[in-house]
Amino acid sequence: MNKKGQEEMVGFVMIVIIVAVVFLILLGIFLRQEPSASEADSVEVTQFLESIMGYTSSCAVSYEPAYSSVGELIEECYRGKKCVGGEDSCEVLEQTVRDILGSGWEIGEEFYYKGYEFKIVGSEETILEISNGNCENEFIGSEYLIPGDFVSSLKLCL
């Protein structure tokens, strides 16, 4: 009877182990396949970045009215050039992008997007970094390649 009881217990333990293993495998598959919201790529953000790069800034490097677009201004900033009016191209770039971001998205605790992170990166260094609001949770975002080996990216945090 004692031996039989032991056999029953071994059987029970084996069943529990099998069930636990199967459950863990299913859980692993589920966690691996579910796309994370933090990695979601957004067409809207790509379109927004593309529009920003086409915006005509108030900075002309050679003569007025040959004003640079934001895309061109990134390269001017990288090369440390000044506008005809004497302003620093990087300052104009930052102010312009900041203003466009402020107009393009409603950001705040009461809105759908709680914050954003905008970045322009060159081959070696970060050229511009602007952030606003709370960006601790999930986000949608996208990257946009700019001629001259620059990459702009925007994350909108939920």
């Binding site: 379109q47 529009s51 009215p65 004003y67 393009g104």
Partner: peptide, 22 residues
């Protein structure tokens, strides 16, 4: 909606093409 650049002829300062965000 989709974001686009809105370009137009700006007649000030001898005239040039200006693109905005829309």
């Amino acid at each position: 909606s989709a974001f686009v650049s809105l370009c137009r002829w700006e007649s000030s300062k001898d005239g040039y093409f200006k693109c905005e965000v829309g």
